[in-house]
Design a protein around this nucleic acid. Structure first.
Length: 234
DNA sequence: AACGATATCAACCGCCTCGTA
DNA sequence: GTACGAGGCGGTTGATATCGT
């Protein structure tokens, strides 16, 4: 055994020391740890006595392997609380903070890291199969329609309060932000239409007979989302 | 059987908080 | 307001056990 410069014992506890400490706690109860070494007749520091009692001698301390349920609870609580071992152990009947901490460092940390890595790889796999939104290409066939008031069937009207862009002559005033979005959209129209519009099963082909637009495609989901708002874009 | 690597866990250390004088 | 001591906590260490070669 190692001794401190002031003569206090360190290192593993002997059976006799455990007996003395147990007897002392039985007689005086827990607490007043500064008095325990004297009362018990132990040549140990107060902290050493407290630790030995809390982590080893205290009744109802659960020994043996952690159950899967306990593992699961520790992982969840650690996610919530971080390295607050005393709080975590408080939710696990009979387990000490030291036990939980050791178990985490020896087993669960690796397990959690492995799971996170697995999850990350799975996420990467999913991301590689995601279809990115394609640019919407509008092709004009025929003359541009008047911007005074563009109506997309059935009841979607595009109007603008800004006289520099779309005409204010429409029946309903429009929200500035939405108008800007549409203005930008319209400004991006390919005038000479060299690029063929892409077509797939998820896009919605619309015929704009009255608008001068021969065809354009819009993702169906987006379209439905937009048109669900009373079929009117502001 | 011998040895090194790795895992496990009890114990220690240093710091922080809180109560008290 | 401040100094001090006790209690408590989390990080780290070191001894021992177990496993693989």
């Amino acid at each position: 055994m190692v001794s401190t410069p002031v003569g206090l014992r360190k290192g593993s506890w002997a059976e006799e020391e455990d007996k003395l400490l147990r007897k002392c706690i039985d007689k005086y109860g827990e607490g007043k740890w500064h008095q325990v070494p004297l009362r018990a007749g132990l040549n140990r520091c107060r902290k050493s006595c407290r630790l030995r009692w809390l982590n080893y001698l205290k009744p109802n301390i659960k020994r043996g392997d952690f159950t899967p349920d306990e593992d699961d609870l520790i992982i969840r609580l650690h996610k919530l609380l971080g390295n607050r071992w005393s709080l975590i152990s408080g939710r696990l009947l009979g387990r000490t903070a030291n036990d939980v901490k050791n178990h985490w460092n020896a087993h669960l940390q690796k397990k959690v890291l492995a799971l996170e890595e697995e999850k990350r790889k799975a996420q990467e796999t999913i991301q590689t199969t995601i279809f990115k939104p394609r640019p919407r290409i509008f092709r004009r066939i025929g003359p541009l329609p008047s911007r005074e008031n563009i109506t997309i069937e059935p009841n979607i009207s595009i109007t603008n309060q800004n006289s520099d862009n779309l005409s204010p002559s429409s029946s309903k005033p429009v929200d500035g932000e939405c108008t800007q979005w549409w203005s930008n959209l319209l400004a991006s129209v390919e005038i000479d239409g060299e690029i063929e519009p892409e077509s797939n099963g998820t896009s919605l082909e619309l015929q704009g007979e009255n608008t001068g637009w021969n065809d354009f495609s819009l993702d169906k989901d987006i379209w439905e989302l937009l048109s669900s708002e009373n079929n009117t874009i502001m």
